[in-house]
Amino acid sequence: MILLIFGAVQLGLIYALMAMGNYISFRILNIPDLTVDGSFALGMAVSVMTAISGHPLLALVFAALAGACAGLVTGFLQTKVGINPILAGVLTMTALYSVNLFIMQGKANQSLFGHNTIFSMLENLGLSKNASRTVVVLVIAVLVAAVLAVFFKTRFGIAIRATGDNEEMVRSSSINANATKCVGFALANACVALSGGLVCQYNQSADTGYGSGMLVVGLASVIIGEAVFRHGGVTRGLYAVLTGAVLYQLIIALALKVELLPAYGLKFVSASIVTIALAMPKIKSIIGDVIKRKKEGV
C-alpha cells in the first residue's frame, strides 16, 4: 500500500510537469493546445534514444528542447500562418507521430532496460530505488514550478500572461503578441516533453502511442488543483496544478487498487472530470434558475 502511494506520488510529480504545460497554454495563454499528445511522446522518444547512447541527464535537456521546438511550430502556424489554434495543434501533433517514429528508428517501442537512467544514476550513489525516484521527481517538479513562477513575473513573463488576457492591449503596449504566444507555446511544450522524457526513464521504456489522451489528463490535473486551491495568482496556480496532478494520480491508483474501474477506464474518467468541470458554470446557472423559480412560485 505504501509502495502504491509512493508510486502514485512519484508519477503525479512527473505528470505535474505536463499539467503545468497545459496550464500555461490553457489558462495563461487561454488557448487549448493539442500539440501536447505529440510533444509528450516526442519527449519520450528523444529521452530514450539519448539515454540509450549513455546520457540520461542530457536526455532530459534534449527532450525539453525538442518539446519547445514543437511548441514553436504550433505557435508559428497560429500566428504567422493564421491557422485556427485547435487545427494548428492537431497538425503539429499528427506530424510529430512520424517524427517520433523517425527518432525511434522506426520502432513503436524502445526499452531502456540495462541502460543508465537519471534514477539509476542516483541509486548508484547509494540511495534506495524508491528514495532516488522520489528525490529526482520532487526536485525537478518543484524546481520547474519555481522557475516558471519567477519567469511569469519578469517583463516577458507578464507580457505572455497579458496576451492571454487581452491581446489587443499587449499590442498597443508595443509588444509583439505573436512572439509572446510562440514563446508561451514553446515553454508549455518544453514542460510537456520533459514530463514525457522523465516518464520514459521512470518506466524504462518509450512508446510512440503513450502520449494519446495526455492533454485531457493534464487538464484534469489542472482542474483538480484549482478546485483545491481556488483561483489566485500564477505562482499559486502553478503549485495548485502540481498538487492537482499528484491528487489525480493518487485517486487513480486507489480506484485501480480497489478495482473500482479497469485500467482501460482511465481515459474515460479523465475525460469525465474535465467535462463536468467545464460544464459547472452551466450546471450552476440551471440550478440557480430552478431555485429562483421555486422561490418565486412560493
Partner: peptide
C-alpha cells in the same frame, strides 16, 4: 473600458 487593460492582472 475593457479594451485597454488585462482584467486578470
Amino acid at each position: 473600458p475593457m479594451k485597454g487593460t488585462a482584467p486578470h492582472m
